[in-house]
Design a protein around this nucleic acid. Sequence first.
DNA 1: TGTTAGCACTCTCTTAACCCGAGTGCTAAT
DNA 2: ATTAGCACTCGGGTTAAGAGAGTGCTAACA
Lengths: 344, 344
Amino acid sequence: MLTERQLFLLQLLVNDYIVSAEPVGSRSIAKRDDVHFSPATIRNELADLEEMGFLEKTHLSSGRVPSEKGYRFYVDHLLSPVRLSESEMGNIRQTYRKQFSEKEDLIRITAKLLSEFTSYTSIMLGPELLEMKLKHIQLVKLTENQGVLIFVTDTGHVENRVVAFPDEFAAEDIEKIVNILNDKLINVPLYDLQNRLQDEVKAALRENVRNYKQVMTLLTSGFKKNESDRVFYSGKSNMLTQPEFQDVNKIISFFNVLEGKDLVRELLNIPPSGVHIRIGKEIKLSGFEDCSIITTNYSLGEGHVGTVAVIGPKRMAYPRVVTLIDVLSRSLSQSLTDKEHDPH
Amino acid sequence: MLTERQLFLLQLLVNDYIVSAEPVGSRSIAKRDDVHFSPATIRNELADLEEMGFLEKTHLSSGRVPSEKGYRFYVDHLLSPVRLSESEMGNIRQTYRKQFSEKEDLIRITAKLLSEFTSYTSIMLGPELLEMKLKHIQLVKLTENQGVLIFVTDTGHVENRVVAFPDEFAAEDIEKIVNILNDKLINVPLYDLQNRLQDEVKAALRENVRNYKQVMTLLTSGFKKNESDRVFYSGKSNMLTQPEFQDVNKIISFFNVLEGKDLVRELLNIPPSGVHIRIGKEIKLSGFEDCSIITTNYSLGEGHVGTVAVIGPKRMAYPRVVTLIDVLSRSLSQSLTDKEHDPH
DNA sequence: TGTTAGCACTCTCTTAACCCGAGTGCTAAT
DNA sequence: ATTAGCACTCGGGTTAAGAGAGTGCTAACA
C-alpha cells in the first residue's frame, strides 16, 4: 500500500513529466514550495515507488519517468478533474449553436474542436449504418441514361449513388419505381435491405415495370453498403510537435497505423459507456506503444451510437483530455438528437 | 546554347539525382557504359553547365545537383515520355470499370491511385459548385420538427442539410414546399439561387404556406453554399519517406501548408488545360521551396472542371508523374461524363 | 526512527580534434 | 579536344574529454 506522501509524490511527478517530457529528478521536486522535504528523502521515496513498479529510469543515473503501471495508477486513482476556462466553454457553446448543417459536419466539427483543444489527434467513428432504418428513397434522372439514387435514414443520414439506367427507360418508370421502393422499404433497417429487395420489391417490380431485371441489378448494386467513410480524423499532424515523435520512423509507423484499418477495429472494441483510457501496450497495435487512447461514445438518438477518440502520447494531459472528451461528446449527442428541443 | 553532349549529360545527371537523391559526381557518370569520355571531360562540361546556372554544388567539393533552372530546362526540353507497365494500365482500367458509386468516390479513388502509383501526395479539387444547376430538390421529414433538405445538381452532386421545422408544421406543407421549389428552382445555377429564393419562391410561399417566414429562413440558410469539402487528399504521409523530409520541422511546415487554405487557392490559379509543372520557388508558398507541383484538369461534362495535383519533392520523377496524371485525369473525366456510353 | 547532508559514481550530451573518402579544379601530357 | 595526375576542400564518422544532472549509500542529526 502506498503512503500518503508516496501518492502525493507520484502525482506530482506524473504531472511534472506530462508537461516537461523529461525525466524528473529529486531536486526539481524538492524545489517546489508545496514540498517540504529534502531531495534525499524524495530519492528514498522514489526508489521505493520504482521498486513497486510505478516508476522507471531511462538510465542508471537519470531522473524518474512514470511506468505504464504508474500511468495506470495515476488515471485510476489520482486523476483530479480540471475545469475548462470560460472562454473555452463559450467557444464550444457557440460552435454548437450554429444550425442547419449536415449531420456529418457536426461530427467533423467535434473532431476539430477536440484536436485543437487538446493538441492531439482526434478520431470520430460514425454510427453503424446497418442499424439505421430507411426513411425515404428517391431516384432522380440526370441524363437520358443515368440518374442518382438517394436514400435517407431515420438518423438523417443521406446516401447517394450515381446509377446507369437500362435502355428504353421511360420517365414514368422512375415514378413507379420510387413509389414501389417507398412503399416496400420504408422503416426497413439497412441490414435487412438486400433481403427485402429480393423478395417484395422484386415481385412488385415484375408486375409494374418493363426491364425489371435491369432495374433490379441497378437497385441491388445501388444499395450496396459502403462501410468506409464513417471515420473522421482531425489533427493528424499534431503529433509531430510532441517531443517523443521527433524520430521520422516513429512518425511513419504512427501514420501507417492511423491510416490503416486496425485502429478503427480496435476503437470499436470499447465498452459502450463512460470514458475509457488505454495506455501504451494496452493498445494492441505495434507502433502505438508510446501512445494512449481515450475514448467515449456519443449518441444519435434511438440507440445509434458513435465513437469519439483522442490519441496522444502516453505522456498525455489526461485530466484535461478526459474533461474535454466528456464535454464535447455530450454536446455532440445533444446537437444530434435534441436539436428540436432547443431550436434557438 | 547547349551542345549535344551537354544536353545528354544534363539529362543523365537529373535522372540520376532523381533516383539517388545524392549529389552526382563525374566518376559515377563516367562509369555508365553509355558514356565514353573520362571523368575529367565530364568535370569540364559540368563546370560549364554550372556556370550557365543549370547545376549547383552543395559545397565546394561536392558532386552536382540540378538547380531550379536546371529542373525547368529538364521538364521543358528533356522530358522523355514514359510508358506505364501493362499491369499498371490493367489496374487502372479495372478500377474505373467499377460502377454505381458516388461521384465523389470516383474522385477519391483517383486521388488514391495517383498517390499510390507516384508515392507522392495527390490533391483533387472538386468542380466549382456555384456553376452547377439544380436538378431536383427534396425535403424529407425525420421527426416532428426536423427534416433533411436534399438537392441534386446536374452533375449528380448531392447536398443535404438537416433543418429545423417551424412549429405547427403540417405534412401537407412539405409537399407544397417541395412542389414550389421544384417548380421555381429547377435549372437555376447555384450562384443565382439566393436571388431566386428571395424573389419567386418567397412570393409563391406567401400565397400557399402558413408560417412562410420561418420556412424562408429555413430555406435560405439550408441552401447556403458550402465552399469546403471539395478537396480530397491522398498519400499525405508519402512525403515522410522522401530523404529531403527527414527533418521534423520541414515535415511540420509541409503539413501546415497542406492543411491550410493557401495551397488550394494556389492550385486554382492554374491555366485551364494541359499538364502544368511548378518547381520550387515558382510555387509561392513558404515551406514548399523544396517541392514541385504537377497539375492538370478533369472534366465533369458541360464545362464543369476540377483540378488534379501531385505534390512531390523538387527531385520528382517528372516523366512518370506527368504520364500518370495525364492518364488518370483522362480516365476520371471519362468515367464522370461518358459513363452512359460505356455502361458495361 | 525518520530525515538530511555529503560524496563518490554513473550516464548522457556537447564540443573539439581527427581522419577518411569522395569529389573538384587545375596543369601538363597525349 | 581529351585525359591522367595531383593538390586541395569539405562533410561525415569516430574518438576523447569535460560538464552537468542525477543517483545510491553512508553517516550524522533531531
